[in-house]
Write a protein that binds this DNA or RNA. Structure first.
Lengths: 110, 110
DNA sequence: GCAACTGTTTGATGCTCGTCAAACACTCGG
DNA sequence: CCGAGTGTTTGACGAGCATCAAACAGTTGC
């Protein structure tokens, strides 16, 4: 089910803490993280993410930042891309970090 | 011993997660955090922090960002300022976050 | 094939940020 | 008082970033 193609992403060992924090130090990307916290796969459509006030290219940009930081993974299936959290990888690299972040659920969106 | 004047800082309840992550999403400020992890008070001199490659005004800027984000507190004593981590406040606001960050000690400096 | 669909890429624009240098404010010691 | 010490503020500059719009690329369905 998940052996489709995946967009390039850093190896678990290469995930950098400062890069992750920089990625999450933006209100829109924090909102995305909270959406992804259900461990489900999500489309890239801004309306499916409660971000209909943002242009689709802007959302695409934010998702690229998250993916390149190692926070998310993107599975390509046909003309859809399914984004989900790299929870196991993040937990392995920075134990407790994700739990602390999700527990401290900041004010969502902006 | 610590009832000197303190520079303005957000109340514990007002510490914002995204603001904290933004503050720590910079290699220099992460280095400062690691220095402050000993829970001691530190001067603002770049040479005392292993940041002698940076101008003192640059370091001052970074310390302001950390303080305004609620990460550090600054005690004013004479012509010195003593900066230290707001560990208890951060632990209260975002339990486990600081421990996870310090455990995942990224590559220090840059 | 062609049109609709999903998402990315490119270019442009304005804002933020990191950095340095110089000037400033405040304090301590003689 | 005056000079040295500590740190901040201001101004300037270049780089990076968030955003939108338009063009583009790949896929599905008719």
């Amino acid at each position: 089910m998940s052996d489709d193609e995946r967009l390039p992403q850093p190896a678990t060992a290469d995930i950098d803490l400062v890069t992750v924090l920089h990625a999450l130090g933006d209100p829109v990307r924090m909102t995305l993280l909270l959406s992804y916290a259900d461990d489900a796969e999500h489309s890239c459509d801004p309306r499916d993410l409660g971000l209909d006030h943002l242009h689709k290219s802007t959302v695409s940009h934010h998702m690229r930042v998250l993916r390149e930081a190692g926070v998310t993974t993107t599975r390509v299936a046909g003309r859809n891309r399914f984004v989900s959290l790299r929870r196991a990888d993040l937990d392995a690299r920075f134990p407790g970090l994700l739990d602390a972040l999700l527990a401290g659920r900041a004010t969502p969106v902006r």
